[in-house]
Amino acid sequence: MGRVPAITTTLTAADRFGAWKARWGIGRLQYAVPPGLYAIGSPNPESPVVVTANYKMSYDLVRKHLDGRDVWLLVLETEGINVWCAAGKGTFGTAELVNRIRMTGLSSFVTHRRLLLPLLGAAGVAAHHVESATGFKVRFAAIRAQDLGTYLDNGQRTTEAMRQLTFTAAERLVLTPVEIVHGMGINAWLLPPLFLVGAFGHGSFSAVGGMWAVVAYLGAFLAGALLTPLFLPWLPTRSFAIKGGILGMMWAAVLHAIAGTDWSVADMLAAGLVLPSVAAFVALNFTGSTPFTSRSGVKKEMRLSLPAIGIACAAGLVVWITDFILRVGAAL
């Protein structure tokens, strides 16, 4: 029997700052702890074994909710990815779990043969294969780490509520910063040309005109990346693209109301076509962050909506740029 690092269950300011940074996509793919076996409290050979991923946010959440208990924590190498995504990729998987049980010598630390896994890890771990390879029985305890305490206290029984996914406004909102940060990487390439076309849109250079083009685009982007997730259950239809498209259309109307006194018909057409298609495309990308969209569903939605989004966006840009060329030509 070897030695096992003991870890605390209290999160420090540095842990919270690290989680905040990961939410904003800063160093997120390097936010990991070393895989292996850890001791929480003073575990003995009868103490439960909880399994998690080596994404530091997952590890922190699990140890925080095991405060005051004596538990073994087995951390799998998921390359700094959370349980759900790593299970989908197979890194939070049967092979890694079997391998980690052997490498840590887990069977010499505990006399029982039970492992408590997060329920969302079941997409990567085949319980019957783990048992035949190692003798350890896998129990998918609960979806949320916060239910671990109740689970352990009521004799390791999973209630229906522990097995049910939720997607509250807070749970949706916390996912939006990383969408926005990733999107801004693409936006950085689009904004300079948008600014220039907007600025020269009236024949002569106008910084204000350029700024409005940028504001129009960013508004549509946020309609898809922030407002669609926030209002998700209340937006009509099941299609993310349509949900986003509706908000993009509303944004075009708002923009027209506050800044559109001198808009030409071409401006209105361009805004009415481009802004909803930008919002629809960005909203479609949020399917990847939800816990209820299926691969076949996303494929179908993409097949139906991407051509429509592409045609609307291209048509709007053609109208806008043709109008721009005509105006510049007329001014010369």
Partner: peptide, 12 residues
């Protein structure tokens, strides 16, 4: 999961 439904008739 109440309140959330995605496209119907597509799952494999």
């Amino acid at each position: 999961m109440n309140g959330f439904d995605y496209l119907s008739g597509v799952t494999t």
